[in-house]
Design a protein around this nucleic acid. Structure first.
Lengths: 180, 180
DNA sequence: CAAAAACGGTACTGATCGGTACCGACTGGA
DNA sequence: TCCAGTCGGTACCGATCAGTACCGTTTTTG
């Protein structure tokens, strides 16, 4: 023990926030489940809000890295983003997208957490846009924003239905978009 | 005063829950802003959870009535659901869809609030499906679920962007679906 | 008009919220 | 060896959480 307190806090907080939401998880629980002392927490983070922001930042980076890797593994085509999503949707503990959940849970648009969530979505759109360029698809910017809307719709639908169906539904719509 | 305590509780709670989320609003605040006494609240509702469920139930009914009315006003075609959504998206205090927000905020799938939210979405899909039938569109069930995914994607996107653009984006996708 | 029901207000419970202060133990580098 | 820095643990702080009990008043109803 004694080392990695910060890393353990980030890891534990990410799991708890994802599974239960931000408001529903108190600092107390993060401390007890991570085994980090109270003072250590406030030595590493200015407060709960700073922890939330840091968690979202790490999540953003790792999620986009994961998406890139899975899309590449499925062929590298923009349509493969839905194959990647499908891999997650069926998970028993699937709880949707952290960024979306943050935007719906935290009302204040100007809060650091909301800004991190918005930044994440912008970066994902950029990633999809690059996939469009790599596939020589016309109007990559417009297509990327269409795909992003389909991805968000699929994520919310998957959270509701608890299956991967929404990924295939969104993929089907995306296919007919590219075919038109 | 003294009358309509239940109605005032529902109205005040709906506004506060929508604007701030469910967890973020305490009973105390609902009481002070509605002017209802503490005991009166617990005479009408078993607790906060019962209030939440009742709010969602009322919201579901009124929202679908509103959607039906606005779609009819725009022509009655399934595509007009996006015209209706656009009317709301640009609102300064737009905070997305109560059902989606409930699903992302409340983790427990079996909770009454989550079930009400899921029921709401199912009823909206049924409504869209009926619009499909009225417009003699083939495969109304499949089309309705596609439209529902686009609607949810548009709602989340609008919450993020703060403009009505997402409604037009989703409408464009829906148009190319029907054209294919 | 009187009884009954619904009402608003206040005081209270135990639990938890985010955050601060201080403690002794452990560890790595000089 | 010593000392600075990090660590976990605990005792607090005021505020708020959901919920209960009892108060006197107002409104509705028979």
């Amino acid at each position: 023990m004694a080392v990695n307190a910060r890393a353990r806090l980030l890891s534990t907080a990410e799991s708890l926030f994802y599974a239960n939401g931000i408001h529903a998880v108190g600092v107390e629980r993060i401390l007890s489940e991570s085994g980090v002392g109270r003072a250590s927490f406030y030595r590493h983070f200015a407060g709960k809000e700073a922890l939330v922001t840091a968690v979202l930042e790490g999540r953003d980076a790792r999620w986009r890295a994961w998406l890139s890797e899975r899309v590449a593994a499925h062929g590298g085509h923009p349509l493969n983003v839905f194959d990647a999503l499908a891999e997650r949707f069926a998970a028993q503990d699937y709880r949707g997208c952290v960024a979306i959940n943050t935007m719906t849970e935290i009302a204040d648009r100007a809060s650091p957490a909301r800004e991190m969530a918005a930044l994440h979505k912008r970066r994902v759109i950029e990633l999809v846009e690059q996939l469009m360029r790599d596939a020589d698809i016309p109007e990559p910017d417009r297509r990327a924003r269409q795909f992003a809307l389909l991805m968000d719709g699929a994520i919310v639908t998957a959270l509701r239905e608890g299956t991967a169906d929404a990924a295939w539904r969104a993929r089907g719509i995306a296919e007919s978009l590219l075919a038109a």
